[in-house]
Amino acid sequence: MTSYEDFAGREILPLWEGPDPVNVPMIRHWAEAMGDRNPIYRDDAAARATGRPGIVAPASMMQAWTMRGYAATVEGPDAGAAAGARELDGLLEKDGYTSVVATDSEFEFHRELVAGDRVSVREVVESISPEKSTALGTGRFVTTVRTYTDQDGEVVAVQRWRLLRFRPKEARAPRPRPAVNRDNAFWFEAAREHRLVIQRCAGCGTLRHPPGPCCPHCGSFDWDAAEASGRGQVYSFVVNHHPRHPAFEYPLIVAVVELDEGTRLVTNLVGVEPGEVEIGMPVVLDWLDADPDLSLPVFRPQSGIAA
C-alpha cells in the first residue's frame, strides 16, 4: 500500500509546455491588472534603454504561462499525464483531507522571460508532513518543487509550493455580530426580548427603519418605538449559494420584508424551500436565537400559504 512517505521525490506532473508563448498582449494585460506601471513591461524602447533585449514579462507571471486554462482543467489531464497527482489526491481524499488552502510560495528566478519564450513546468513532491492540527482543521502540508524551463531546456525559475490539505472542522461557527451603536441599540435590546419594534418620530409620527438619529421627513430628533404586528409580505429576495460562511446553512434565503406597518427590513426566510418563495407572499414573524446575547427576527410563510 502506498504511503505518504513514498511520494517524497516522486514526479506528480511530467514536463508540461504552456499553451501560449510569452507575448506582449498578455504582459500588458497583467501589468494593467496589477497596476504595475514599470515601462520595461509596456514600452520596447524603455526596456532596451535598460540593456534588455525588449519588453520582458513580470517575474510574478511565471505560473501564468503554464496554466492550462478553464476548459482543460475541467476536462482533466490526458490519460497517464499526471497519474502521480491523481494517486496522491486519491490518498488524501480517502483520509478525509478534502479541503485545500495554499500556505506559501517561494520563487528563485534565473532569468527574465521575453516575448517568444516557451515555458514548460515539471513538478516533484519534496515532502508531506505528518498529520497536524491547525485552526482550519487537521491536515498535512504538501510541499512540491516546480521547475520552469524554456524552449532550450534551460531553467528559468524554481518554485517551492506548499499546500495544506485538511479535514475541515465540523463545528458551526458563531453567527457574525451586528454593528450595534447608540442609534440602534434599542432595537437589538427589544429583539432579545422577542419584540420587533419600529422607530417612530415623536414630531410627525412617521415610522422609519433602519433606525437613525433624525427624522428624514420633519427633521425632529425626538422619537419613541412602536411594536410591530409581526405580519408582512416578501418585497424582494435572493437565494445565496456562494460564497459560503460556516455560520449559515445553505441555500440561504435573504429577503426584504415589507411589514404591514409600511417599513421594510432585511431578514432571512425560514420554513420554506427557495423555489416556493414568491414576491408578495404573506409572511409572519419568527425568532432566531443565535446565542444568549443575540436574537434576530426571521420570517416564515403565513400558515396555509407554504409548507
Results as ranks from 00 to 15, higher is better:
L285M: 08
G9C: 03
I128L: 03
C204Y: 12
T143E: 03
G153E: 06
H217L: 12
E108Q: 00
I128T: 03
L88C: 00
F188C: 07
C204Q: 11
A135L: 02
L91D: 03
P21I: 02
L113P: 02
D222E: 15
P213H: 08
F248S: 11
D117Y: 03
E258K: 04
F7N: 01
A202Y: 08
P297M: 12
V257F: 11
V266F: 04
S303V: 03
M281S: 10
G203F: 10
H241F: 15
N240D: 08
G9I: 00
V119Q: 01
A307L: 07
P251N: 06
V234Q: 07
T267I: 10
A45V: 00
F166K: 10
W161C: 00
E273T: 14
G262P: 13
E170G: 15
G275E: 14
Y70A: 06
G280I: 09
E32C: 00
G275I: 12
G280L: 10
V180L: 10
A202P: 07
L196S: 12
G80S: 08
A8V: 03
R146V: 02
E278W: 02
L92Q: 10
I128S: 04
R28D: 03
G90C: 09
R48C: 06
V142T: 05
T143F: 05
S295W: 01
W16P: 00
F186D: 15
E112D: 03
H241I: 06
G84S: 13
M67I: 07
S99G: 01
G76L: 12
G9P: 01
Q199P: 04
P210T: 08
F299P: 00
V121S: 05
L288R: 15
V155C: 03
F109E: 05
D289Q: 08
I279H: 14
V142A: 02
R37S: 11
G69L: 14
D6Q: 03
R165Q: 05
D95H: 06
A226C: 00
E227G: 06
T50G: 00
L92T: 09
G205P: 05
A81N: 07
L136G: 02
C215M: 12
A179D: 15
C215H: 13
M26I: 06
A81G: 04
Q63I: 09
A190L: 08
V284P: 04
A290F: 10
W223S: 12
G280Q: 11
S229W: 06
L136I: 01
P53C: 09
W65N: 09
M62S: 06
E258A: 14
P130G: 04
D95T: 05
R172Q: 15
V284K: 06
D293Q: 09
R68Y: 00
E93Y: 15
L285R: 06
R10D: 01
G262E: 13
F166A: 02
G139W: 04
L269N: 09
N268C: 04
A81K: 08
R42E: 04
A33T: 06
C215A: 12
G116V: 09
V74A: 10
S220N: 08
L88R: 10
